[in-house]
Amino acid sequence: MALTFSTSEESTDLVLTMAGQLDALSAPDILTTIDGLIEKKHMMIVVDMADVDLIDSSGVAVLVALYKRSRSIGGKMKVRGAKDQPLAIFKLMNMKKVFQIA
């Protein structure tokens, strides 16, 4: 399943909502949008992964890139709604030490 994504605002947070598979196939597309998201200078970026059913190492790399760029402007990032395989990967890689997983 391809990845679809959209952005919205909740209070002062920027919410990036994804659905489908965040993987080697979809990572290049979303990577090109990250810089545009950072330019909006929100101090909190929320990645909603409730409808993401698979993430691979390329997908994790996208989140790491987003986290690093957000941090570079003094911002934060958190992931919410992850379950099943994506949550198993985050636990395995201990990603909660990097960004908040709600």
Binding site: A24, L54, D84, Q85, A88
Partner: peptide, 21 residues
């Protein structure tokens, strides 16, 4: 079950990627 499925699928996906790419 969820953890087993998630971890096996994760491993398999990485190897599949490696072969295809």
């Amino acid at each position: 079950q969820r953890t087993f499925d998630g971890e096996f699928v994760s491993a398999f996906s990485e190897i599949f990627n490696n072969i295809a790419i």
